[in-house]
Amino acid sequence: MHGTKFARTIRFIAAWLLVGLFFFPIYYWTSVAFRNGRDIFSRPPKIFDFEPTIANFNAVFGISFEGGVPQITPGGGNFYMAPRLWDSIVIGVGSTLIAVAIATLAAYALSRMRFKGSHHFVGWVLSTRMLPPVAVAVPMFFIYRQFNLLDTYTGMIIIHAIMNLPLAVLLMKSFFDDVPNEIDESATIDGASRWTIFRRIVLPMAKGGIAATAVLCFIFSWTEFLFALTLTQTDVRTVPVVSTTFVTSVGTAWGNMAALGAAAILPAFIFVLAVQKHLVRGLTMGSLKQ
């Protein structure tokens, strides 16, 4: 990180340009949520000088500030989406919890225990991700109908957990592989059982890995579209699916769609923020070995 002042300045500018490049679409989309129709379609496009309004949020979440007091009026109109946000949260958190719990146990076993075919097992786990989801969507629909899982939280949580498991297992395995085996051996000599070693020593060491895996699982579930579209109808609908309903025969409700999109960033953002402390360590853990 040395170099001349000039080089440092260039680097500084380049870094901010890059950040701006990534941040601008988020800003613009969020700003659309606060515009009225005229400002959305103005030409040239208005970046900052629009008249802010919360009408879009009012329609989508039933929030209004008439008389200066926030009022929540549920069930307002076709675009009332607050329950859909809740659906996404339940499915995202539920499937993440299940996927991470199963993946952690499976990955520890794959990392530490030798059993017949353990080597092939990893390849087999990975192979389930090689199938394009669309190839299983229709069969899943029939299976789900048979088991009465269509249009339920349980059904969506299961399918998202299954979808995330292979990646979560492989990811967690690499984190466990980074924990030196001598630590297990030392604990074995100390008299700890396999379960005690896992719970008291290895698991705390893999906290960062669990956080990183959880973030990925949550985001995949949060943004998943295909299964959410085919396996739900009316009771349970996730944000990506209902986003399409803003495209109607009489036009697209861009402002409302943006309001939902902007709101949908929040839970994911809060989730990442909550595990962020561990996340950074998790993502760099491999380089901190010994």
Binding site: A192, T196, I201
Partner: peptide
């Protein structure tokens, strides 16, 4: 046994490291 790379438990304090097998 004492290992080459010490194999200390990084999430435990020195005291807990030493006491671990006694606790078990």
């Amino acid at each position: 046994m004492v290992f080459q790379n010490y194999a200390l438990y990084p999430t435990m304090k020195v005291r807990e490291n030493i006491a671990f097998n006694l606790e078990i």
